[in-house]
Each structure stands twice: as structure tokens, then as C-alpha cells.
Simulated scan of single mutants.
Amino acid sequence: MTFTQLEIFALVAELGGFTAAADKLGISQSAVSHAIRQLEKEWGLTLLTRGQAGIEATEAGRGLLLRVRELLGVAEAIRQEVSAARGLNRGVLRIGSFGTTSSLLLLPRILEQFKASYPEIDVFVEEGEDDEVAQWLAERRVDVGFVILPDERFDTMPLVADQFVALIPAAHPLASQPSVRLADLCAMPFIMTLAGNTSLIEKLFESAGLRPMVKHRYAQIITIVKMVESGAGVSIVADLAVPAPLMALCPGMVKKPLSPVVGRSVGLAVPSQKHVSPAVAAFLQTSKSMVKSLRGGSLGGL
């Protein structure tokens, strides 16, 4: 068993194909196949099989894949610490991000400062829904991720406080009220966000014993905003997902706090604070400093 074989195994499972893994590693497909065969022969297990979506890990392979990714993460951390000791600050950083709050408002500003301070660190970003990012963290597919707090599965660092708001057509009678109850939103078509927080919003209604009339489901916040403005329905999203510049583009829509207020907290998470690489530690520190400097101003009331 070699680190190269483990890296190839993890990459084939992640990308779903031998060719894709070979292209990313810059080696031949036969070399990838040979590495997998040698690993399976040594372990006496079938690690990969062909499924409907391509090559995927077997049940035994999935169980080992988590440990393989942990081991590769430790190896990467050692390489980064050696580079830091030599004054090179090189390495790889994989970030999981979701929705407007992290991908649009927080991450670009944090990365701008991070890349200025650590230009030799190679950064990769994967965007998905909030539940997906948490899953990627658990599977060690990303090193650090934006999450909704609290999340007891990981070591976390709070970044920003937020709340949920109702999006209402400006011409609707609810638009003149200071706040909106969940029950008020059940009397008209509801637009459910798929851009993050879907499960949280569903639980809000469930806990209140209510069921919204979901007629639309959209993954893009701009689509949700424009559909509300057109009068197609109402929605609930995170306040930071609809910042002032976006509101200015949609004068036919207003946002109102929920009554009672429903808050949320967004932060960064790592599988274990004790085993973070120098690149992750630097990203966490940069994020903490950057968000502190932005509070009360350019992020719309953070």
C-alpha cells in the first residue's frame, strides 16, 4: 500500500471514473487501473464497481474511503507544516460553501485577503446545499466548510448571526405589516428555496403544525426574488441572502421579519480542530479577522 495508490483510490471514487482520475493526476488510465488492482489484491477486497452513475465505491470500499481520506489529510498537513517550517507556505485547501450568505457575501472577501497573504496555497471551492457541505466534511472531501450552527458533528467557529425573513410582493396587504406570522404565509402559494435552509424552513412549519402551499421550488435566490416580485407567491429565506443591492433591483418585493423572530448562525466547521493543516488554520484565522472587520457595515448589519 502506497500513498499514491490511496490517492488514486480516493480520486476515482470522488470523480466516478478512471479516465477522469487519470486526467486530473496527469497519468495514464492504465496506471490508474493498475494502482487499484494492486490495492484490491493487497487488501483482498473489491473496492470499486460500476454503477448507474459511473464508477463508485463498494460497501467495503465506502467504509475504507473515510479512513483513506483521513490519512491523506494527515499527509497533506505534514507536507504543509514542512513547507511552513521552510518559509514556503505552500499547500492545498479545499473549501465547501453554500448559498448566497457564504458564496457571495463572505467567501469572496475572505479569499481575497487569504490569497494576498498566502499566494502559494492552492484553493479549491465546492458549492452545494448546506446539508451537502456537512456531508462533504464528514467524508473528508473538503477540509473546511461553511455550515449552519450549531452542528455537534464538527469543531466550529461562528462567523455571522442572521435571521429568516418573509419575501412578500409589495402590493400584497402583508407588505404593510411590521412582521409576518408563519400562518399568514399559508394562505397563498409558497415558493420553497432549494438554495439552502430547505430542511430548516420545512421544520419551522412542521413545529408550528402548519403546511404551506408549496407551488414552486427554485435553487437560485434571484429566481425566488423575481417570482415573488411578479406575484407568483411568497417565500422564506435568510436575511443575508437578499442584501440591499439585490433588494434595490426588485422594488416590487419587500422582506419582513418573522413573528416570532427566527434566527440562525453561520460559521465554519472542520472535522477536528486538533488535526487541521496550516492552510486550514490560516483560513480560519483570516475568516475570523475579516468578518470582525465587516461587522456593522458592509454586510448589511452583521
Rank of each mutant, 00 (worst) to 15 (best):
Q5D: 13
L6I: 04
E7C: 08
I8G: 14
F9T: 06
F9V: 02
A10W: 10
L11H: 08
A13I: 08
E14N: 00
L15W: 10
G17D: 01
G17F: 02
T19P: 09
A20N: 13
A21T: 11
A22V: 07
A22M: 07
G26E: 01
I27D: 01
S28A: 09
S28I: 05
S30T: 13
V32C: 07
S33E: 13
I36G: 04
R37N: 15
R37T: 13
R37W: 00
R37M: 07
R37I: 10
Q38K: 15
L39G: 10
L39A: 05
L39T: 11
L39N: 08
E40G: 04
E40K: 00
E42P: 10
G44A: 08
G44S: 09
L45K: 14
L45R: 11
L45M: 14
T46K: 14
T46H: 13
R50Q: 12
G51P: 09
G51I: 02
Q52L: 14
A53C: 03
G54H: 10
A57H: 03
A57T: 12
E59F: 15
A60D: 15
G61K: 04
R62T: 14
R62H: 13
G63Y: 00
L64K: 12
L64F: 11
L65E: 00
L65T: 02
L66I: 15
R67M: 13
R69P: 00
R69C: 03
R69E: 07
E70F: 09
L71P: 11
L72G: 10
L72K: 09
V74H: 13
A75I: 12
A75C: 11
E76F: 02
A77I: 05
I78M: 10
I78G: 02
I78F: 09
R79Y: 05
R79A: 11
Q80F: 03
Q80E: 15
E81R: 07
E81S: 12
S83I: 04
S83H: 06
A85K: 01
A85Q: 01
A85F: 07
A85T: 06
L88D: 08
L88W: 01
L88H: 08
N89M: 01
N89L: 05
N89G: 03
R90D: 09
G91M: 03
G91A: 02
V92W: 00
R94P: 05
S97E: 06
F98H: 00
F98I: 03
T100M: 09
T101D: 10
S102A: 14
S102E: 13
S103E: 07
S103F: 07
L104N: 15
L104E: 14
L104A: 15
L105Y: 10
L105G: 12
L106T: 02
L106D: 01
L107A: 05
P108N: 07
P108E: 04
R109L: 11
I110T: 04
I110S: 04
I110P: 01
L111K: 01
E112C: 06
Q113S: 09
F114S: 02
K115L: 11
A116P: 01
A116I: 06
A116V: 00
Y118V: 05
P119C: 03
V123C: 00
V125R: 06
V125I: 12
E126S: 11
E127M: 02
E127R: 12
G128I: 01
G128K: 01
G128M: 05
E129C: 13
D130M: 00
